[in-house]
Design a protein around this nucleic acid. Structure first.
Length: 281
DNA sequence: AGAAGGCCCTGCGTGC
DNA sequence: TGCACGCAGGGCCTTC
């Protein structure tokens, strides 16, 4: 589930309870997520003070006093559960892999049934050199992500634009949902070869990506109010997709039949893509 | 070099 | 109610 906007929302929710706080206890309940978790991770977290957070693509970096950063990736099914620690709530939830307890008594759990997520520890000074981060493309919401930058990355590519935008080396943080949504917004077919996008289409695509992500983050931010409550679940929030998951339904740009049969679902590289064949060319 | 496909893992909805 | 199947928002590895 978590793409850039969800990861951003989760990070902000974590910051609410962890920034400036001391981790009173940390327990690693399962060490085999996508990658093996460093054995000393729980010990390093215990007693540490959290000084800040950063997001890079779909990764969260939690910075500790003393110069280390905890890398968190939620995979496809990861979420964070935040609640006040109570005497009857010591038990772990199913698929809960890491539990942190703050000096204020908040209990923060990482839950990931499919275990496609990961945790790692690194020096804060070397965050960007981490093997999982070093080849990542620009942050789409940064000013540095421009039409020229995206065009250069796409030029000559003979893969569908859908696949190119999922490639984290081209742009960081987009996943299957927001790629479909951004391409719909830009009026570009997901099947179009990436190399044909530079030009007028890239001029539509870059602002479409920024707006799509920006609106989703705003929706997540408004849902953050709920996380302030003691039983907050970070990771999911209500958001209305325009094409994702809407196969057969009319898109907002079309009048419906007979002019248009509605949103179409196709499979590209084994994954679902949703688009409007009439307005995305 | 770059792209397509298989695979990792568990849960859920659907149809029989 | 049970069971088989397909599908799921990520990313890595192998193959071609």
């Amino acid at each position: 589930m978590p793409e850039l906007p969800e990861v951003e929302t989760v990070m902000r929710g974590l910051a609410l309870r962890l920034e400036g706080r001391r981790i009173r206890a940390a327990a690693l309940l399962r060490g085999d997520l996508r990658r093996a978790i460093p054995s000393g991770l729980a010990a390093r977290l215990t007693g540490s003070t959290v000084i800040g957070f950063r997001r890079r693509g779909k990764y969260i970096l939690m910075r500790l006093a003393g110069g280390d950063s905890l890398l968190i990736h939620l995979g496809m099914s990861g979420r964070m559960a935040i609640r006040l620690q109570g005497p009857a709530e010591m038990d772990r939830e199913k698929h809960e892999h890491l539990i942190l307890e703050t000096d204020e008594g908040w209990r923060i759990g990482l839950i990931d049934p499919r275990r496609f997520g990961l945790l790692d520890l690194m020096p804060t000074a070397a965050e960007d050199a981490h093997v999982l981060l070093r080849d990542m493309g620009p942050e789409p919401l940064d000013e540095a992500f421009t039409v020229a930058v995206l065009s250069e990355a796409l030029r000559g590519r003979r893969t569908p634009i859908k696949a190119a935008l999922l490639d984290q080396r081209i742009v960081a943080g987009l996943g299957n949902i927001y790629v479909s949504e951004a391409l719909f917004r830009a009026g570009i077919s997901p099947r179009r070869l990436a190399g044909s996008v530079p030009g007028v289409r890239a001029q539509r695509l870059v602002p479409a990506i920024k707006a799509t992500l920006g609106e989703a983050i705003a929706a997540g931010g408004s849902s953050l109010r709920d996380y302030v409550q003691p039983d907050g679940e970070l990771g999911y929030f209500q958001h209305a997709w325009k094409v994702y998951g809407r196969a057969g339904m009319a898109c907002e740009r079309c009048p419906g039949p007979p002019g248009c049969a509605g949103v179409k679902r196709i499979v590209q590289a084994g994954r679902s893509t949703f688009f409007c064949p009439r307005t995305q060319l």
